[in-house]
Design a protein around this nucleic acid. Structure first.
Lengths: 266, 266
DNA sequence: CGTCGGGTTGAGGGTGATCAAAGTTTGTGG
DNA sequence: CCACAAACTTTGATCACCCTCAACCCGACG
């Protein structure tokens, strides 16, 4: 389906196709997991499902019986305003569980959409609930994941509420690059981003036309290139500074020193 | 400190001063609690703390050992963008636990601020963690609270990203009115809102000047009055429609019918 | 009575929206 | 491999929402 060298599929470079392995890797970015915890996770039954680009995985008002672990591809949450304008709420990459909240909220309050061709692993809520009852540490780890989601939402409120178009764009791309790198995919200076300018606009609260102009502006200033679904960040230091990006909100250090420099993890 | 008739303190009208009682009321808005659960909650030790208006309860990068239940007053989360501009992230009223996420995220990624004089009850994380291990249903209920927070953040992203100033204002005020009513405080058509126009601006991603103009516009159209820290909604049906408000995102029905009308609960 | 925080008003400007059309890339089928 | 269509990107002209700056007003409070 895709070409042999497929950076755009957003797959694990080692082609890990075990979703649980990816989930473990994700959880271990932010907290410790015992061997028993990992074994318990591996005992979870799942089944794989593919979604072509631009298809809806689940819809507002749906009631789900499963949550999905992203195996490959780029997935987003989205919500419609009353007049039909769309707002993206978050991006999700391999290892994420973008609908984990349905474990305790019985109705979807937004859509889940595959932006590129994507593969997910579905895990039954019943199994997850049993797991969280039997392994409180895992319950905490999963709870924590949903709390990090919430933290990212908060940062997005700041992004659309208090930053101009250029900063919004830089901040968003930095976030995606940072998270991809943390999962071992791409480099901070260059990473896959299989998304249209229209989608970017919906993520940033802008129009596609203006997104186009902002991208050109950033390209002319030598800060950024966004071509063929790949983002390249050139002047890295300047970019980091201008984007107003502080990785604190991603909570990826389970016990960071109190006064670690903002970009210490980079 | 306040006058005898004190609608502005945002206290329980029956003057309940047991924080656990308020917490139970809050949790029961969205899910069932057994008597055993309630008893377990009542066994939690806490101590009361007061914060004058405009003081900070906890700060970005703080590490907390307690979470707080709001007893009275209006509290908000806030975050600074790089250039010093402030963005509010949510409002919190009696019964809320605005820093519950610190139970599993060890660093605050935003500030917690008392907008009016406020009273909170501090509960130690150690006690909460023990409780969640011993009572999985309570763990689920508290997890659920943080998930509802996240849903509200999502709605706020839509609000600042895809609605114009008027709609933003209406939506925000409707949300606060709705939540106060659910906790038995005020009416949908009239409720306390002890906040400056500047704070409103920070919540909406606008400037204080523009907030002032929007409020005047809404007043002239007979939709809304905001005087002396009290919001009055006049033309209620029209307001509900124009504000693009759908209470689904507050997840207050634990088992709502699939096709309940959006405003069914009002 | 003076100060201070907050609310109100006015004039002017800029960021980003809107509308419309022309390019360009991507995908598909012949 | 080419022809064609569809989707996406780019460009230009114009517009509006909201910002900025600056001043003034008002009520609360010492």
């Amino acid at each position: 389906m895709t070409s042999p060298s497929r950076p755009l599929a957003l797959e694990d470079p080692a082609l890990t196709n075990d979703p649980i392995e990816l989930l473990v890797r994700r959880l271990r970015l932010t907290c410790e997991l015992s061997d028993a915890d990992v074994r318990a996770l591996h005992s979870l039954p799942f089944h794989i499902k593919d979604f072509p680009a631009r298809t809806t995985i689940s819809r507002e008002r749906d009631r789900l019986s499963h949550s999905c672990v992203v195996v490959s591809g780029l997935i987003c949450r989205a919500k419609m305003a009353g007049d039909g304008r769309r707002q993206l709420l978050s991006f999700h990459i391999l290892g994420d569980i973008p609908d984990l909240q349905t474990l305790h909220l019985n109705v979807m309050d937004h859509d889940l959409i595959a932006l590129s061709d994507a593969r997910v692993a579905l895990i039954a809520h019943d199994d997850l609930r049993r797991l969280t009852r039997e392994q409180p540490d895992l319950a905490a780890a999963l709870w924590r994941e949903t709390l990090i989601d919430a933290s990212v939402f908060r940062e997005w409120i700041v992004n659309v509420g208090r930053r101009d178009a250029r900063q919004r764009m830089m901040h968003l791309l930095f976030e995606v690059g940072f998270r991809l790198k943390a999962m071992g995919l791409g480099e901070l200076g260059s990473f896959p981003m299989p998304i249209t300018q229209s989608d970017l606009a919906d993520a940033l609260g802008l129009t596609p036309v203006h997104v186009n102009r902002v991208l050109q502006n950033l390209r002319h200033e030598g800060l950024l290139d966004f071509k063929r679904a790949t983002v390249t960040i050139n002047n890295f230091a300047r970019f980091a500074e201008l984007s107003d990006f502080d990785p604190l909100y991603l909570h990826q250090s389970s016990a960071a020193p109190d006064d670690a420099p903002p970009m210490g993890a980079v």
